[in-house]
Each structure stands twice: as structure tokens, then as C-alpha cells.
Amino acid sequence: MDPVYFWRRTDIEGFERLELLVSPLGIEARSTVICLEAGGFRLDHSWQLDSGWRAQAVTVERWNENGHGRLLLERAGSGWRVDGALRPDLDGAEEPDLSVTPFCNTFPIRRTPETPGASLSLDTAFIDGPALTVARSSQRYDRHGARTLRYVDLGLSCGFEADLTVDGEGLVISYEHLFERVMPA
């Protein structure tokens, strides 16, 4: 059976269920988020990652009071396509960062050196889930210990920082101010 993860929002009412399928060829993830933020919405996101946990594509579908919307972000060399169109403003952005889930933090966390005091800075293709928009942003991960890091936003939410606790795979257990993993009863 493939692993399933659940996260609860700690800042507002919201919940996520994510199913992870890992194979030697790559990783697939499928998730549903239900949230009361932004008037309430359901958001499904599915990811295709290579075996090194680098995102190749993410599809985001949102249902809210305005109806249904869909966004596809695909790696295109050192850049990205959004709904099939090249986005030169995203050239060099290393990974997608989807606002409504801690799952995408796993990609840079797995690449942050494990030495306490080490850091990893990167540009991201930030996806605002409720709005279904994509913009370039920057962030940094500071390693405090084997399973503890500090997230520092250097871009769109400059000044936001949060302590993260992760499991042995780099998946978030707790994300200060926003998310905590929960176990089913």
C-alpha cells in the first residue's frame, strides 16, 4: 500500500490528504485540500517528480464559489510552461511552491545539506492555489538539525519565517504557523 499523509491547517480551517507513489522511475503524488480560506474551496493537486525529487509537472484544479479552474505547470529545460505557454519570468526557478500544502517544501528540504548551519536558497515558481496564478519568488532553508529547519521567505512574502520539523524522508511533520501532520484514527 502506498503511503498516505494528512495535514491540518493551524492558521485557518483546512485539511489535506496526500497519496504518495514512489517507484525507481520517479514519484507521483495526488492530493485533495479542503479549506475555508478565500471563501472556501476544494483544490486537487497532482505531481510528477523524477527519482531525485525534482518536480517535472504539477496540475492544480480548484473548485470554489466561482466555479472550476485548472492550472498546469511543466518543467521546460531550465524554465517552466504554464498552461502550455513558456514563462520567461520563471527561467531558473528551481521548483514549484504551491501555497496550500507543505508537500512541496520536501523538494528543497531533501537538497539542503544535512550539516547544522547549512543553507539552501532557491527561486521558485510560486503557485497561489486559490487564485491559480504563478509568480517567481525566492526562499531559503536553514538547517538546524537532522530533522529541523528554518524556512525564510525572501520573495513574495518577504519577512515570513517558520520552523519546520520533518521526518526521515523530508516530509513536513510541523510547519510553524501553518500546518501539522495528523494521523488517521
Results as ranks from 00 to 15, higher is better:
54 R>T: 11
57 A>M: 05
29 A>R: 01
46 S>M: 03
34 I>M: 14
55 A>Q: 06
41 F>G: 10
42 R>Y: 09
44 D>K: 14
54 R>P: 05
50 D>E: 09
56 Q>C: 07
32 T>V: 12
43 L>I: 13
61 E>S: 07
45 H>V: 08
51 S>F: 08
37 E>K: 05
43 L>R: 02
56 Q>S: 01
62 R>A: 05
55 A>E: 04
31 S>E: 06
54 R>L: 12
38 A>R: 04
49 L>I: 13
37 E>Q: 05
57 A>T: 07
54 R>Y: 06
61 E>T: 05
43 L>F: 05
57 A>I: 02
44 D>H: 12
51 S>G: 02
45 H>N: 10
38 A>L: 03
62 R>L: 11
58 V>I: 14
55 A>L: 07
42 R>I: 13
33 V>T: 15
60 V>D: 01
56 Q>V: 03
34 I>T: 14
58 V>A: 06
54 R>A: 12
51 S>A: 13
41 F>H: 15
52 G>S: 15
62 R>H: 00
40 G>T: 14
36 L>W: 06
40 G>E: 13
47 W>L: 11
33 V>F: 14
29 A>S: 09
48 Q>W: 14
51 S>H: 08
63 W>E: 03
58 V>P: 00
44 D>L: 12
45 H>Y: 15
61 E>Q: 10
35 C>D: 07
29 A>Y: 02
30 R>F: 11
59 T>S: 03
62 R>W: 02
33 V>Y: 09
39 G>Q: 07
31 S>A: 11
37 E>Y: 09
34 I>G: 09
42 R>C: 10
53 W>Y: 14
52 G>P: 05
56 Q>F: 00
33 V>C: 09
33 V>W: 07
62 R>Y: 00
53 W>F: 13
52 G>Y: 11
45 H>I: 12
42 R>S: 10
62 R>N: 02
58 V>R: 00
30 R>P: 05
53 W>Q: 03
44 D>R: 14
